[in-house]
Structures are given as structure tokens and as C-alpha cells.
């Protein structure tokens, strides 16, 4: 059996990659995908803990996380479309209407 720590380390690496992508990327869609990566890294941890603890709660939690991520994606894409209609750009570097 693969020990718990392997899953946790993998999940930590994926989460960190998501954080790095969020910070480094300037393309809106890439940033959005980075967030999804972070959420799925958490899901991996949840499933691993759930298996390790012999407890169904973690499995249950994953479904809620997926539903919430889907809702967030729906609203997020709608907002992105509104932004693109106003500005004709997908680059985060140009989102600077309110710099002081």
C-alpha cells in the first residue's frame, strides 16, 4: 500500500504549482485554470485522508468541492466574458483602471 505521505506530498506539489501559476501567469484563462488545479490538489488530499481515516466524510466533501468549483467556474466565465466585452483583452496586466 502506498503510504499517506506520498499523497500528501503530491497534493502539496500540485497546490504549490497552482499558486505559482496564479502568481506568474498573466493570461486570465491560465489563472483560472491554476485555481482549479489548487482545488483539485485539495481534493486529492481529502480522498487520501478519507481512505486513511476509514471515514466517508472526506469523500462527501470532495463532491461539495466539485459542485462549488463548477458554480465558481460558471460565474467566473460569465464575469470574464463581461470584462472581455468591455476591454477586448484577456491579459491581467492590462487590468489597471484603478491604479493610484
Amino acid at each position: 500500500m502506498i503510504p499517506l505521505s506520498y499523497y500528501l506530498i503530491l497534493s502539496g506539489i500540485l497546490f504549490t504549482l497552482g499558486v505559482a501559476g496564479f502568481i506568474v501567469k498573466s493570461d486570465l484563462i491560465s489563472v483560472f485554470i491554476s485555481i482549479e488545479l489548487m482545488l483539485n490538489a485539495v481534493n486529492l488530499s481529502l480522498i487520501a485522508f478519507s481512505h486513511y481515516l476509514r471515514d466517508m466524510t472526506g469523500n462527501l466533501f470532495v463532491f461539495f468541492v466539485m459542485v462549488v468549483a463548477a458554480a465558481e467556474a460558471a460565474v467566473g466565465l460569465a464575469i470574464i466574458i463581461a470584462v472581455v466585452r468591455n476591454r477586448q483583452t484577456l491579459s491581467l496586466d492590462e487590468m489597471d483602471l484603478m491604479k493610484h
Binding site: G18, S45, F61
Partner: peptide, 26 residues
């Protein structure tokens, strides 16, 4: 633009919160 920034940073924060409660659960 405000909504976009709120959404991106809000979801980013949510992921951190979620990771935290996952570890707490574990």
C-alpha cells in the same frame, strides 16, 4: 474589473481556506 479581481483573489483565498480545513480534517 473589480468583479474579476474579487473573483480571482476570492477563489484563490477559498482554495487556501479549503486546504487548511482539509489538513485539519486529516
Amino acid at each position: 474589473e473589480a468583479a474579476l479581481k474579487y473573483l480571482l483573489l476570492g477563489s484563490f483565498a477559498t482554495a487556501f481556506f479549503l486546504y487548511g480545513i482539509t489538513l485539519l480534517y486529516g
